[in-house]
């Protein structure tokens, strides 16, 4: 627990450790620190960063690099979960977007137009989800399940069931290129994060999202158009998934409707929840969600590097996530640590 002293200083130093443990950010940050600590012992050179062929190179960079699609999806997911919703269709949207992008590139369309239309496709998918949830009043888990199931079918229809490849310098640059030695997709992701933060926290939209998620009836009486807010949240999620799809398919230089973005919704939801978001709605944390993504991606990468057989990957991941969530639960802490305290007394 002396580890806590090395944490970034909070706004004001809490008087007691118990106080600290109650903070939303505490356990996710501790978990990330512990995982990195284990890595420091298990995998040699985990923290070394070098420059190879004019590009930053190292395990930590790899974590960031591979984490970007999940981070983008998770940011959109955080907002949807903030409205007391959920978006299961994000993986399918990645597939659709990949197929549309590949198709458009093969139509010899100018790359910037392809990007715009591709992202618009993502937003359109979100609009569909939003209409089902907000206007038809279908439960979010069911409403987005519909697109989750049909989405890959639509994608397969577009690319005729084939893995269609393309060559595009523009998209390769966005996805796998670098700017001043920094992988460009990390910059894309960071830029998206900043834009989202400004859009939600420097306007009142974030507050409106949380009001709708916290108590939709009360938000309505306070003059918030709850429907519009929900539709907007799902569109934002679609847009973020679209961008993730651009990165994923720019990386493999083609559409892979069966596998692109498969199970990404699970990692995204986990990241949001680790980051302190509650599926009961009412709060979202963009920054902590990114920490959640880092935990998941660091874990995935560490398991890969540590030499643990890959078949255990899922189990180790599940156990670590469970521990992080349990530690974040006040009731669990009171039960378990309460026993110790009583034992000590």
């Amino acid at each position: 627990m002396e580890h806590a002293d090395r944490l970034p200083a909070a706004a004001r130093p809490p008087s007691r450790l118990g106080d600290l443990a109650g903070r939303k950010w505490f356990w996710p940050v501790v978990a990330l620190g512990l995982i990195l600590l284990v890595d420091a012992f298990v995998s040699r050179g985990f923290f070394s960063i070098g420059i190879v062929q004019g590009r930053l190179y190292g395990s930590l960079i790899d974590v960031l690099y591979r984490g970007t699609p999940i981070a983008l999806v998770a940011l959109g997911m955080a907002v949807v979960i903030g409205t007391k919703g959920i978006d299961l269709s994000v993986g399918a949207v990645v597939a659709i977007v990949g197929a549309v992008m590949t198709y458009l590139i093969h139509q010899d369309m100018a790359a910037p137009w392809v990007l715009i239309l591709t992202l618009a496709t993502g937003a359109l998918c979100g609009l569909w989800n939003g209409l089902l949830v907000a206007v038809l009043d279908i439960q979010p888990i069911i409403a987005t399940l519909i697109l989750m199931v049909t989405g890959r079918g639509i994608a397969l229809m577009i690319d005729a069931g084939l893995i269609v490849t393309f060559r595009s310098d523009f998209f390769s640059a966005i996805s796998t290129g670098q700017v001043f030695t920094v992988p460009s997709r990390i910059l894309v992701c960071a830029g998206t994060f900043v834009l989202l933060w400004l859009f939600l926290r420097r306007t009142s939209l974030g507050l409106f999202v949380e009001s709708v998620g916290g108590n939709a009836a009360a938000a309505d009486l306070a003059g918030i158009d709850a429907r519009l807010v929900k539709i907007g949240a799902y569109m934002l999620s679609g847009l973020c998934s679209g961008l993730a799809g651009v990165l994923i398919c720019g990386d493999i230089r083609g559409s892979d409707s069966n596998n692109a973005g498969l199970f990404i919704e699970l990692d995204a939801i986990l990241a949001v929840v680790i980051g302190g978001g509650s599926l009961a709605g009412g709060r979202f944390y963009l920054g902590f969600t990114v920490i959640g993504v880092l935990i998941i991606q660091t874990l995935t990468t560490s398991i890969l590097y540590s030499g643990v057989p890959p078949e255990y990957n899922m189990i180790v991941k599940g156990v670590v996530v469970l521990i992080v969530l349990l530690l974040g639960s006040r009731r669990f802490r009171d039960r378990v640590f309460g026993v110790f305290r009583r034992g000590a007394a």
Binding site: S211, G214, N215, A217, A218, G282
Partner: peptide, 9 residues
């Protein structure tokens, strides 16, 4: 409680 408060805020 039902129509006014947004408890998490």
């Amino acid at each position: 409680k039902a129509e006014g408060l947004i408890a998490e805020l």
